[in-house]
Computed example of a mutant assay.
Amino acid sequence: MVPSRYRRRPWYRTRAYRLVRTALLAVVLVTVVSRCGAGGGAAGHGPDAVAASGSSRADGGDPAPPPRPLPRSRPTSFRVRSLGIDAAVTPLRLDRNRQLETPPVDTPKLVGWYQGGPTPGEAGTAVAVGHRDTRTGPAVFAGLAQVGPGKPIEVGRADGRTAVYSVDRVEVYDKAGFPDKEVYGPTGRPELRVITCGGLFSRRTGYTSNVVVFAHLTATR
Rank of each mutant, 00 (worst) to 15 (best):
T90P: 09
T102A: 13
V89R: 00
G44E: 11
S73M: 05
S53H: 10
S82G: 10
L94P: 03
P91G: 04
L70D: 12
P47R: 10
P103S: 04
P69E: 11
V80M: 11
S55K: 14
S56Q: 05
V80G: 04
E101V: 08
A49H: 09
D106W: 12
L83M: 03
D95V: 07
P63M: 12
T76F: 09
R96D: 15
H45A: 08
P66Q: 14
V89K: 08
P65K: 09
H45K: 11
P63N: 09
D59S: 09
A87I: 00
P91E: 02
R68H: 06
V105P: 01
A52N: 13
P75W: 10
N97I: 07
R98M: 13
D86Q: 11
P69I: 11
L100G: 02
S55T: 15
G46F: 06
S55E: 05
D62V: 15
P66M: 09
G46M: 01
A49G: 15
G84S: 07
S77L: 05
S73R: 03
P104M: 02
T102K: 00
I85S: 01
V89P: 03
S77I: 06
G60W: 07
R81H: 01
H45L: 10
L94F: 01
A51I: 14
I85H: 09
R74K: 05
N97W: 13
A51D: 15
K109D: 14
A51G: 14
V105T: 12
P63I: 02
A64Q: 15
A49K: 15
V105A: 14
S77Q: 00
D86E: 12
P75I: 05
A64T: 13
V89D: 03
P65M: 06
R81C: 02
A87D: 07
G61W: 02
S73Y: 12
R96Q: 13
A64F: 14
A51T: 15
A51N: 13
P108L: 05
R57P: 12
D62F: 07
S53G: 11
P63Y: 10
H45G: 14
D59A: 09
V80F: 12
D106Y: 13
S55H: 08
A88M: 05
S73F: 04
T76S: 02
R96T: 15
G60L: 08
S56W: 10
A87T: 01
D95Y: 03
D62L: 08
L83Y: 09
V105Y: 11
A58G: 12
S73K: 02
D86G: 06
